[in-house]
């Protein structure tokens, strides 16, 4: 082998000689040279088929009609127009998106034509709901409800638990998404004394088994159903009313007051007092009708009800 190597690397010269300086010759292999020529042929074919040469602010588009792409695009006013152009990456992308949209449409059509209950009972259709719902949810709902639908205390309700301020049936969830919701609680700092608010706070905490002062809570109870007029919205049993979105105060779930995240009776009382005194005016769910297609809203309804899984 070493002999072979020596033989191939012995330099040959072109025979040119300038002042004793010789020029080596190392011709390229024939197959390599031919490969090089073939690239020339390739480029010419390429110019005929694809956009290639820039000319000012324009460019050559290949031979017209030789290599085209047809795709459907939406104009600004929502009309669908079919376009045929010379081959380019953008048109190719549009063409492929058309194909994918057609594939996806069958599934959306199926969701649109099926009742909520039947969609959720169809395990194969639910796979589509899981994946399409995840994308729709991430794009539209996640900014408030968070990526996993877990919500955020003080901002947006958790959609994975079983508490539904405005009702957890398919129809109620659908209405919430399509038409939006507005949950408001008036502030009581001007109508109630501070110690009355404290008593109410103890009562509210007692309803969900949180630490409280029983004596203060007992006074709070009379206020709740009396002068405090809390019962008009939250109901005499404090279980809330999904028709108006008043919270159920007897369960363990808190949206506006961070009770789970605070420790100690005093801090918890302060949290509840903050809500009673200041009220809630941020419980706004925007309306999605018009922004999302009906079948998308329907799919999201099933996604929230079954995939996120808090539906009741």
């Amino acid at each position: 082998m070493s002999q072979d190597k020596a033989a191939t690397t012995t330099p040959k010269t072109t025979g040119h000689n300038w002042d004793g300086i010789e020029e080596y010759t190392n011709p390229l292999p024939t197959w390599w040279i031919w490969g090089f020529y073939i690239t020339f042929i390739f480029t010419v074919v390429y110019w005929l088929l694809y956009p290639a040469w820039p000319i000012g602010d324009k460019f050559t588009k290949g031979i017209p009609g030789l290599h085209t792409i047809t795709y459907t695009a939406k104009t600004a006013d929502g009309k669908e127009v079919e376009k045929t152009t010379h081959w380019n990456m953008r048109a190719k992308f549009m063409h492929e998106m058309n194909e994918h949209q057609a594939d996806q449409k069958q599934w959306f059509d199926k969701v649109a034509a099926t009742s909520f209950e039947d969609v959720s009972a169809d395990a194969e259709l639910m796979q589509f709901v899981n994946s399409a719902g995840k994308t729709l949810f991430s794009d539209n709902c996640a900014p408030c409800h968070q990526a996993g639908g877990q919500g955020k205390i003080g901002m947006a309700p958790n959609l994975t638990d079983d508490h539904w301020q405005f009702g957890g049936t398919y129809d109620e969830i659908h209405e919430t998404i399509a038409e939006g919701r507005n949950g408001v609680m008036p502030p009581f700092q001007d109508t109630l004394e501070d110690d009355q608010i404290t008593q109410l706070a103890h009562y509210v905490l007692s309803l969900s088994g949180e630490p409280h002062n029983p004596a203060l809570a007992a006074t709070g109870k009379t206020l709740f159903t009396g002068a405090g007029i809390c019962f008009t919205c939250h109901g005499p049993d404090a279980k809330g009313n999904t028709a108006m979105g008043s919270a159920n105060l007897t369960d363990k779930i808190w949206l506006w007051a961070d009770i789970v995240g605070t420790t100690g009776q005093e801090a918890k009382v302060a949290e509840v007092k903050r809500i009673i005194a200041g009220g809630v005016n941020r419980g706004v769910m925007p309306t999605w009708e018009g922004r999302l297609k009906p079948e998308q809203i329907k799919l999201l309804t099933v996604y929230v009800h079954d995939t996120l899984g808090g539906g009741r």
């Binding site: 958790n158 638990d161 508490h163 088994g209 159920n248 789970v260």
Partner: peptide
């Protein structure tokens, strides 16, 4: 296991985990 959220407390204080 669904990790976002890892678990959730329900209204009666019970705990829910979700799985695929």
């Amino acid at each position: 296991q669904v990790r976002q959220p890892l678990f959730v407390m329900l209204s009666d204080g019970s705990v829910r985990n979700r799985y695929q």
